[in-house]
Nucleic acid binder design. Structure first.
Lengths: 223, 223
DNA sequence: GTCTATAGGTGGATAGAC
DNA sequence: GTCTATCCACCTATAGAC
């Protein structure tokens, strides 16, 4: 476990605060998580958040920035590997996997923090705070631009609007899959099914759904 | 406009409170909307919420119950019209439209309340409150069961898991489309595109995407 | 049913000792 | 850097006059 507060370094406290906040945000929401509950969870004192992050909002920003940057970088790395060079058009399935896999993998990661953050991934799309939204958009911009650009190359006949909207639909499916699991659990309960699936199966299901969804783009959307 | 508080009936105040709460919830989130701001917006006194709804949570429940019931009823009505009788298997496109259309239509409804509530539709899937989640699930259960049952008839070779997961993906796409519009707006801005589309086009785009997505279900998900 | 006043509690932030 | 004590703004809920 983490060292006792008395013999902890600055970095330890900062990380403990981030971890505790992340967990509470995932479980109860941001607004409902008080600095008191966060500092108690981190075994730090009440003033530590303001010392290390300036304010509660600063802490919120730090919580999201910490995980979003690696997540989106991973997506870009995987996308880059879908084509041997810049001239080659990437494979659709490889592209969709590059977008989806890093996020879905988080829900059963070895890292507790990743698992907690996964629950936040869906909710963050609907957060009302302008400040937080701006940060999320900043972190997401590069991914959004590179993936839509590559999708345009895969489907040269499709309009920009069509590409962007389908990308939007895809983001929604992914978010609900990663963070809205309680809903599917409910349904599976009703259907008397056990949830014995692994992440790989889930990724395959989602990529399969999205892939055929995208393949309908070239012809008329509605027959 | 609504009548002045002094010459208003009980029902008027109740409705004014629901409208004001709905608008504030959509704009700032539930936790961030205080009873003070709600009652001020409704031109009612601070105590009125507790008088009419018992508590803030009672008001929250009422806000969601008011719109969710008609929305889901509309979905069921449209689904019922997709097949001439119980023996006939419904048309896939008709079924998907029945699920999607009532929600998407809300975003440009003539009723201001519908438009405000549409912004809440996505966020509600990730609300941490157990009480609210239970209400949402209760209202959604019938829709969820009937649509997945019909989808099983459309795709008899598909497993229950596959049906329920794809239904889950679909809910995510719809939620993000209806409530997460700020994100697509951002992208459209970046692409220098104007958002001059009407709702009908949007519904067609979404149904087109979902329809081809579902059509991939019979064969192997991954080739 | 409406409204004012207020109780009773919790929130984020900070001053200042160590 | 850490921690305690405290400020004060704001919250929900309620009591009681009208």
């Amino acid at each position: 476990m983490s060292p006792e507060p008395s013999d902890r370094h600055s970095q330890d406290t900062k990380t403990a605060l981030l971890d505790a906040a992340e967990k509470l945000f995932a479980h109860s929401g941001i607004a409902q998580s008080s600095l008191r509950s966060i500092t108690t969870g981190a075994k730090a004192n009440l003033a530590s958040v303001n010392y290390h992050f300036g304010s509660k909002e600063g802490l919120v920003r730090a919580v999201f920035a910490r995980r979003l940057h690696p997540l989106n970088q991973q997506r870009l790395d995987l996308l880059a590997r879908c084509a041997r060079d810049d001239r080659e058009i990437p494979d659709l399935q490889c592209l969709l996997r590059a977008f989806v896999e890093p996020a879905v993998t988080m829900i059963s990661s070895d890292d507790t923090g990743d698992r907690e953050f996964a629950k936040l991934l869906g909710r963050m799309l609907f957060e009302p705070s302008n400040d937080l939204r701006a940060l999320i958009m900043d972190e997401f911009r590069e991914v959004s631009e590179q993936f839509t650009a590559e999708l345009s190359r895969v489907f040269p006949a499709a309009s920009q609007q069509e590409i962007v909207w389908r990308f939007h639909f895809m983001v929604g499916s992914l978010a609900h899959t990663v963070a809205g699991r309680y809903m599917i659990s409910h349904r599976l309960e009703c259907l008397q099914l056990t949830e014995d699936e692994d992440v790989e199966t889930l990724i395959n299901r989602l990529v399969g759904f999205l892939q055929t969804g995208w393949l309908g783009i070239e012809g008329e959307a509605m027959p």
